[in-house]
Write a protein that binds this DNA or RNA. Sequence first.
DNA 1: CTGAATCCGCTATGATACTG
DNA 2: CAGTATCATAGCGGATTCAG
Lengths: 103, 103
Amino acid sequence: MNKDIVCPLNYTMSLIGTKWKPLILFHLLNGGVRSGVLQKKIPGISNKMFTQTVRELEKDGLVIRKIFPVVPPKVEYKLSERGFSLEGILRSLDSWGLEDSKH
Amino acid sequence: MNKDIVCPLNYTMSLIGTKWKPLILFHLLNGGVRSGVLQKKIPGISNKMFTQTVRELEKDGLVIRKIFPVVPPKVEYKLSERGFSLEGILRSLDSWGLEDSKH
DNA sequence: CTGAATCCGCTATGATACTG
DNA sequence: CAGTATCATAGCGGATTCAG
């Protein structure tokens, strides 16, 4: 009996339940963006965690990584269709923060 | 300039952006419950992290802790009004997991 | 020059045993 | 029953190094 299926929330958390994943996904809602630009949008994230996290998202099929074979190196990240299906949740999290921070 | 306000999502994540917080909050949606019962609903959480996490939620005003001065000890946790305001988000996360796990 | 991997020190986490 | 203490491990952050 798989616990992730007993409560689907466990399944969701296994995919996006970390400190940085929702933030990265949120900043990709507006479209694909270059690696360095994306990283600058995430305040406080370390280089290492950015790379590690975005790669996990890629592995889980939420983010697509596109490499341009040019000099200097260029890498872009964008949401997959599956990643986009989280849009409502991500925007709700953002809206909740906006409202709650007023109180 | 506070980064948590530049993007409200940062603020939200600072409150519930950990592995266990959404799970604990979700299992409190149906009402107050005794400590041990709540912990059993969270598969995989260690005793230490359960106590630590639920106390942080209490400190942030999302969860209310009620102590009954009896023997054996009895402690109940329930959502505060502020905690309940996350209901929509928590149920969306659960629903998303249910849908996504089908694919 | 950009993107990412490696190394090291530190913090957070988990398992177990124990206290009130 | 609820929570704490202790210790081993895993994960994170920062600086540096490497690759293209």
